[in-house]
């Protein structure tokens, strides 16, 4: 069934794409899908196109991520490019239910060059849905030039998307905290572009100035801070220019990480197979009695798992 769906996907069948995304979201038949989709993380060779640009939008709930994405969809379509959106919203840890309410802010259309998929993200999974990497590659194979990821409105520590996206856009709004907020770890440092949205509000420049001041303390990194107002229809073209000016960073980093994760899985499998080995048990006992230091026990264990 997967092979048939993948074949239909390659021939531009949207329903097949939609079904494959569902199967991927459920974590089923991932290995089959992955192996059919070229080499993991390699730029897709489909129809000789350049690889898709993956842009993540993160920021707290209500900052205007969906609305801004809606604007950018129109802008990118006017440039003649096809765009897909994976929009994540939180899933209840109690009922497993979710209200996926992003796409209605992005404007409705029947344009074949736009594809929007709503996804439920479980708590504690880095503000994004599971298996997003495979979904991105499905969309890339289908032929989308730009892929937008919308994280759940968490705002702090949404670092998972960094490994998946070429560009991370952090969205802030005026009146959202004093200047110590910008000193907290993981917020500004993960962003490639910072947007002060709702910049028609009178204190927008003050927020932008605070953010720029905080960024000036991090040497050697220049992050554009842009004021955008969707209400006043200002700043979107400049934002897209800033996004396009950045390199397609995703490939090398995430390919190495993927390989590392596979290596970890292999080592874990070997460890589980050998837990009853006399050698390993002797090592553990010696370590528990304090005869071997932790550092040297770890080193011995790693070496014993080499083959």
């Amino acid at each position: 069934m997967i092979a048939g769906l993948l074949e239909r996907l390659r021939h531009g069948d949207r329903n097949a794409l939609a079904r494959l995304l569902s199967i991927t979201a459920r974590g089923e038949q991932l290995a089959d899908i992955q192996s059919a989709l070229a080499i993991p993380c390699e730029p897709s060779p489909v129809r000789g196109r350049s690889p898709s640009r993956v842009v993540a939008f993160t920021g707290s709930g209500g900052v205007g991520k969906s609305t801004l994405i809606g604007k950018l969809i129109n802008l990118v379509r006017n440039l003649g490019r096809k765009v897909a959106v994976l929009a994540c919203d939180p899933q209840s840890p109690l009922s497993g239910g979710a209200l996926l309410g992003d796409r209605f802010r992005m404007g409705s259309s029947t344009d074949d060059g736009v594809f929007i998929r709503s996804l439920a993200a479980q708590t504690g999974h880095g503000a994004i849905a599971d298996h997003l990497d495979v979904m991105i590659r499905l969309l890339e194979t289908f032929g989308f030039d730009a892929i937008f990821l919308e994280t759940v409105g968490a705002g702090q520590g949404d670092v998972e998307v960094r490994n998946l996206a070429d560009v991370v856009v952090l969205m802030l709004q005026p009146e959202s905290g004093d200047d110590v907020q910008w000193e907290k770890a993981g917020i500004l440092e993960c962003a490639d572009v910072i947007v002060v949205h709702k910049s028609d509000m009178p204190t927008a420049e003050q927020t932008a100035a605070q953010v720029r001041a905080a960024l000036d303390l991090s040497m050697g990194r220049s992050v554009p801070v842009l004021r955008v107002s969707t209400k006043a229809n200002q700043g979107h073209a400049e934002l897209w220019q800033a996004i396009e000016a950045l390199p397609l960073r995703r490939r090398p980093a995430s390919a190495a990480l993927l390989l590392f994760q596979m290596a970890v899985d292999t080592l874990r499998q070997r460890f589980e197979n050998r837990q009853q080995d006399a050698e390993l048990r002797k090592l553990v006992e010696a370590w528990q009695r304090g005869e071997v230091s932790t550092a040297s026990a770890v080193e011995t264990l790693v070496r014993s798992l080499e083959s």
């Binding site: 899933q91 209840s92 009922s95 239910g97 979710a98 209200l99 309410g101 796409r103 209605f104 409705s108």
Partner: peptide, 14 residues
């Protein structure tokens, strides 16, 4: 809201 609380994934199209 009710369908969400019943564990469904509700896509609200507006």
């Amino acid at each position: 809201r009710a369908l969400r609380d019943a564990g469904m994934h509700v896509i609200y199209a507006g």
